[in-house]
Amino acid sequence: MTPFGARLRALRDARGVTLTDLAKALHVSPAYLSALEHGHRGRPSPGLIHQVNEFFGLIWDDAEDMVRLARVSHPRVVLDTAGLSPEATALANRLARDIRRLPPDAIAALLAILERAAPEA
Rank of each mutant, 00 (worst) to 15 (best):
T2M: 08
P3H: 06
G5R: 07
G5L: 07
A6V: 14
R9D: 06
R12A: 01
R12P: 09
R12D: 06
G16S: 06
V17F: 07
V17N: 10
T20R: 14
D21Y: 02
A23D: 08
A23L: 02
A25L: 02
L26G: 09
L26R: 13
H27I: 05
S29Y: 11
A31G: 09
A31T: 10
E37P: 01
R43N: 11
P44D: 07
P44F: 03
S45E: 13
I49W: 05
I49P: 01
H50G: 11
H50C: 04
Q51G: 10
V52P: 03
F56P: 05
F56W: 14
L58C: 14
W60A: 12
D61R: 10
D62M: 10
D62H: 12
D65F: 12
D65L: 13
V67H: 15
R68W: 08
L69W: 05
A70I: 15
H74R: 10
P75I: 10
L79C: 05
D80N: 08
T81D: 00
T81A: 10
A82M: 00
L84W: 00
L84D: 01
P86E: 02
E87H: 01
A88F: 00
A92C: 00
A92T: 01
N93Y: 03
N93V: 03
L95S: 01
R97Q: 04
I99P: 02
R101A: 13
P103N: 15
D105Q: 12
D105M: 08
I107Q: 06
I107A: 09
A108M: 13
I113K: 04
L114E: 11
R116K: 12
A121Y: 09
